[in-house]
Computed example of a mutant assay.
Amino acid sequence: MHTRFILVFLPALATGCKAVDCGDGTTERNGMCVPSSETVAPAGCGPGTMLQGDLCVPRLPPTRCDPQTTAPDVDSMGVTTCIGTSAGCSTKLPCPAPTDGTQTICGQIYSFETGEPFATASPSGAKCACPATSGPCALGIKAFDAVVFAMSNGTAGGLATGEVYIDDCGRYRVSNIVMPSGPLIALGFDDADPTKAGPMGITNAVGIATGKGVAATKDLDAFVVAPATTAGWVGAGVPFDASNGIFAAVFRGSRTGTELAAGVAITRNGSPDGNHDYYFASGATGRVTLDAAATQTGANGTGLFNITSPMLTDLYSGIGGLAAGCVWDQHPGASVRFVVFVQTFRPTNAPSMTCSL
Score class of each variant (00 low, 15 high):
Asp191Ile: 03
Asp191Tyr: 01
Ala192Ile: 09
Pro194Cys: 14
Thr195His: 10
Ala197Lys: 06
Pro199Asn: 13
Met200Asn: 14
Thr203Cys: 03
Gly207Asp: 07
Ala209Asn: 07
Thr210Gln: 06
Gly211Asn: 11
Gly211Val: 10
Lys212Pro: 08
Val214Ser: 14
Val214Leu: 15
Ala216Gln: 06
Ala216Leu: 07
Thr217Asp: 07
Thr217Trp: 02
Thr217Lys: 11
Lys218Leu: 02
Asp219Asn: 14
Asp221Met: 11
Ala222Arg: 03
Val225Ile: 05
Ala226Gln: 11
Ala226Arg: 04
Pro227Met: 05
Pro227Gln: 10
Ala228Gln: 10
Ala228His: 10
Ala231Gln: 15
Gly232Met: 07
Trp233Tyr: 11
Trp233Met: 08
Gly235Pro: 02
Ala236Met: 10
Val238Leu: 02
Val238His: 00
Val238Met: 02
Asp241His: 00
Ser243Cys: 09
Ser243Arg: 14
Asn244Arg: 04
Phe247Met: 05
Ala249Thr: 01
Val250Phe: 09
Val250Ser: 05
Phe251Arg: 00
Ser254Trp: 04
Ser254Leu: 08
Thr256Val: 06
Thr258Val: 12
Glu259Cys: 06
Ala262Tyr: 07
Ala262Leu: 04
Val264Asp: 04
Ile266Arg: 00
Thr267Asn: 05
Arg268Pro: 05
Asn269Tyr: 08
Ser271Leu: 15
